[in-house]
Design a protein around this nucleic acid. Structure first.
Lengths: 209, 209
DNA sequence: TCATAATGGATAGTTTAGGTATCTATAGTG
DNA sequence: CACTATAGATACCTAAACTATCCATTATGA
C-alpha cells in the first residue's frame, strides 16, 4: 500500500500522514527502495487511533505520541495507566496547590485511597476553582459525585481485568482513559437534559440557539 | 480602581485585561475621563470567572464570552444550560453521524429521554470512536456508566434547584457545567487509582515517570 | 520505451489562538 | 512642571497543527 492509498483508506491527507511519520506517531513503512515504502493495514488502524486520540480525546500530537509509545512499550500496566491519565489531563503538577486545597480534595475523596497525581491534584484544582467562583457545592451533590466516580472507576478496572494480554490491556487503558472522559461528559449532558426536562416539562421542547 | 490595581488584584496582566475588554468578556469600566476609567470589585470577580472558564474548564476565549453573555442575559434557564453545554463540548453537530451511530447511542441511553444536542451526539461520537478503536465495551461497563451519569445528572439539577434567583441559577449552570466536567474527570482518575491499587497492591507504590 | 505521474523526504509557508509590546495623546501626581 | 500612568489602537510574538512546494528517484501505461 502506497501513501496515496493509505491516505484514501484512512481519510487522512498525505501531508498530515507525513507529519505523523516525522513526529514518530506512525511507524515508517517497509522500504522497498530508496524512495518507496509499503504501508499495511496496521498503518490504517494506527491512523485511526491517532485521529481518535487527537480529535475525540482532544490530545495534542505530542501527548498522543507519549500514549502510543506507552502502548508499544513493555512498561508495567500501571505506568501506562499513569501516562494515559497524564496525557489526558491538562496540567498535573500540584505546585500551586496549598495545603488547604489538598485537604479539601482529600476530604472529598474520603473512602478512596489517593496518591499524588492527576486525580488528587485535579480534584483539588476543580474544587478550588468552584470555591473561587462562589459555587459552594453542598454535601448531597458531593456525595453523588463521589459515588458516581466510584462506580465508574471500578467499572474501568473491571473492563481492563477482562482483557487478555498486555497489548489488549494497554490499548484498553489508553483508549478507555481518553474516550471514557468524552463519553462521560456526553452522558452527563444527556442525563442533565433528561432530568431537566422531566422536572420542567413545559420547557423541555425549547431549544437553545 | 485603575487598571494597574485591577491587574494586581486579579493576577491577570494588563495587556490580557485589555484583550478581554476588546473581546467583550469584561465590561468596560466607568469612564471618568476620555482616557480614564474606574474598575470595581465586580471586575475582579469577573476576571476570576474568565480565568476559571479558560484555564480550569479549557474553554476558548470565544466560548467563554458566549457563556458569560448567557449569564448576563435574561434568557430562559434551559437556554443557558444549552449554551453552557455547547460551549463546554468540542463539536456538537450530528452531521457526520449515521443512523447506526445514533441508534447505538439511543440504546445506551435507554431509560433516559434524549434530544438532539451535545449529550446524544457526544455519546454517539464517543461510542463510534470506541468501536473504531476496537474497544468493545461490554454490558456491565456500559450499565455502570449509565448509572453513574444518572446519579450525576440528577445531582446537578438538584443543585440548581436549590439556588435562589435567576442569576445564581445561571451562574451555577455555567460554572457547574464547565467545572463539573473537570471535577468528574479528576474524580474518575482518583477512583481508578484507588481500585487499581486495591486490586494490584504490589504495584500500588510504583509511580509513572 | 519514454513521457507522465507518483513517491519519500526535506523545507518552508499558513492559520488560528492567546497573549504581549509599542505607540500616542491625555490625565493624574509629587 | 517633570514624570509616570492611562485608554485605546495597532503591531508583534509564539506555539500547534496542518498544508504546500521542491526535488531526485521510481513506477506506469500508451
Amino acid at each position: 500500500m502506497k501513501i496515496s492509498q493509505l491516505s484514501a483508506a484512512s481519510g487522512v491527507s498525505q501531508p498530515t500522514i507525513k507529519l505523523y511519520l516525522r513526529e514518530g506517531l506512525l511507524p515508517p513503512g517497509a522500504k522497498t527502495h530508496a524512495n518507496q515504502a509499503a504501508y499495511s493495514e496496521a498503518h490504517v488502524r494506527r491512523l485511526g487511533i491517532i485521529r481518535t486520540l487527537t480529535q475525540v480525546g482532544g490530545l495534542s500530537v505530542a501527548s498522543a505520541k507519549t500514549v502510543l509509545d506507552a502502548i508499544d512499550s513493555d512498561l508495567p500496566l500501571n505506568w501506562t495507566f499513569g501516562l494515559a491519565q497524564r496525557a489526558a489531563s491538562p496540567d498535573v503538577d500540584g505546585t500551586d496547590l496549598s495545603d488547604a486545597d489538598l485537604a479539601r480534595a482529600d476530604d472529598f475523596l474520603a473512602g478512596l485511597t489517593y496518591h499524588d497525581g492527576p486525580g488528587r491534584f485535579g480534584v483539588a484544582k476543580a474544587l478550588r476553582a468552584m470555591a473561587d467562583a462562589g459555587l459552594e457545592a453542598d454535601g448531597a451533590w458531593r456525595e453523588s459525585y463521589r459515588k458516581a466516580a466510584e462506580i465508574i472507576g471500578e467499572a474501568d478496572i473491571d473492563l481492563i481485568d477482562r482483557r487478555e494480554g498486555r497489548l489488549a490491556k494497554a490499548e484498553t487503558v489508553v483508549i478507555g482513559t481518553v474516550l471514557g472522559d468524552a463519553l462521560l461528559a456526553a452522558l452527563r449532558r444527556a442525563a442533565q437534559e433528561h432530568f431537566s426536562s422531566q422536572r420542567y416539562p413545559s420547557r423541555s421542547t425549547e431549544t437553545a440557539p
